[in-house]
Amino acid sequence: MLKPAQVKDFVNAATKCNFDVDIYYNRYVVDAKSILGVFGLDLTQKLTVEYSGYDQSFEQVLNSLTVA
């Protein structure tokens, strides 16, 4: 489960990206730049992040949250 501080860090990093970042869970798609949208997801479940660009800071945050 993600902690509120981790969600905040993730959303802040996604917001700095100049490309779209989406989070998928089942049939729901949420804009990862929306803190309310992200908190509306069930953060205990496996979520899929999809994006079409590269930002080193975002990659670092995403890698820190990735569960293998």
Rank of each mutant, 00 (worst) to 15 (best):
A14L: 07
Q60E: 15
D55P: 02
D31A: 04
F39N: 12
V61H: 08
V30W: 02
F19M: 10
M1E: 15
E50Y: 08
T15Y: 11
V38P: 00
K46N: 13
C17R: 04
A5K: 15
Y54A: 11
K46W: 13
V49G: 03
L2N: 04
S52L: 13
T15L: 12
S34C: 05
E59K: 13
L43K: 05
V38H: 00
A5L: 15
V30K: 03
G53E: 13
N63L: 10
T44E: 07
E59G: 09
Y54C: 09
F58C: 02
F19E: 07
V67G: 08
S52D: 15
F10A: 01
T15K: 15
A32F: 00
Y28W: 10
A13C: 05
F58R: 01
K46Q: 14
G40I: 05
V49L: 07
D22C: 14
M1P: 15
K46P: 00
S34W: 07
F39D: 05
R27L: 04
Y51F: 15
L62Y: 04
V61L: 10
N12K: 08
T15N: 14
L36F: 14
G37W: 08
K8Y: 06
Y54S: 11
S34F: 06
V30D: 02
V38Q: 00
Y51T: 02
L41Y: 07
K3Y: 08
F10V: 03
S34A: 05
K3S: 08
V61E: 07
F58I: 02
A14D: 01
S52V: 11
V29I: 10
L2W: 10
A68V: 11
